[in-house]
Design a protein around this nucleic acid. Structure first.
Lengths: 156, 156
DNA sequence: CCGGATGACTTGAAGCGTCAACTAATGTCG
DNA sequence: CGACATTAGTTGACGCTTCAAGTCATCCGG
């Protein structure tokens, strides 16, 4: 049965299944808490957070998209909706008309500040406090190594 | 600034950011490869795989939904589409008319067999081979611990 | 053995993400 | 300078997931 494919061993499969299940459930859990308590998706939260911690509470679109791990197109749609809700504003950059700069409004900042404690607490409960400090280090190392394979463009 | 929230320390944040980025990118990478090479989403692949390895190549819907980490509703839609493509069949269980049993067809099995090598190879390249055997063990432990928090209903 | 409760799905509508096409501004090179 | 390429972002359509509501079968208490 040598078809040239290295199938997964029992223990490899077990690790992969556990990790895969985690990957598919954790985002849902995070989204659920944020949506319920703050009316934001996790992606929207990341967008607002990315803006709030940037100089001038502003950031150009492509930059923000990279920060939030999403496509530019997705970001554009999301920012449009956030703008309609009054949480961000958009305007072209002065020096380069192609660039759009998004800015978080006071209302958006309020929503973010209200959402942050719950979100951070959830992350802590579900992830950080579930692990020992050593495991946290291990996790970062593991994630970085896999990321290097998945996304070789961003060596960081 | 003691607002009762335990914010994340630098190293906690770094671990979380790396892991979060991974969680949002890896599913996309897996979907991309499967879609490109086999015309299947990762979820569809899991459904077919779940059926193929079950006795009688059949499984009831709720069971299959749990296996594939998706909601019953989502599974129902997906199975309907797979049925239209001729990859699975559905029929009510004989002993309990509420239960629907899905079965993978020969055509579905062929598609799965054609898709599996590429998918497994991708998982190996991106995940398994990026890590040492020790890290693989660490990853399983970590994933299990977090999963226990995220999804306390499934202690396994 | 009848009627309400529960269980196991299915369905339709609404919202979000992706893809491809499009617009507009800026570089570049002869 | 002028044409063409490139960069940055937006848009619309389409497909998929979710949510709430609906269907049908089975269970259970009186």
């Amino acid at each position: 049965m040598d078809d040239g494919v290295r199938w997964l061993e029992q223990d490899e499969l077990a690790s992969w299944m556990a990790f895969a299940a985690l990957m598919f459930k954790l985002p849902g859990a995070l989204d659920f808490q944020l949506q319920r308590d703050s009316g934001l998706s996790h992606f929207e939260y990341l967008v607002l957070a990315g803006l709030s911690e940037s100089p001038g509470r502003s950031r150009r679109m492509s930059d923000l998209a990279g920060f939030a791990n999403g496509s530019l197109s997705r970001l554009s749609h999301v920012v449009k909706r956030l703008e309609q809700r009054g949480f961000v504003e958009r305007r072209p950059a002065e020096d380069d008309g192609r660039i759009t700069v998004a800015t978080i409004t006071d209302a958006g900042y309020d929503v973010l500040v209200a959402a942050a404690p719950g979100h951070v607490t959830t992350v802590r409960e579900l992830v950080i406090d579930a692990l020992t400090p050593e495991q946290l280090v291990q996790l970062k190392t593991i994630a970085d190594q896999i990321l290097a394979k998945v996304d070789p463009g961003k060596p960081c």
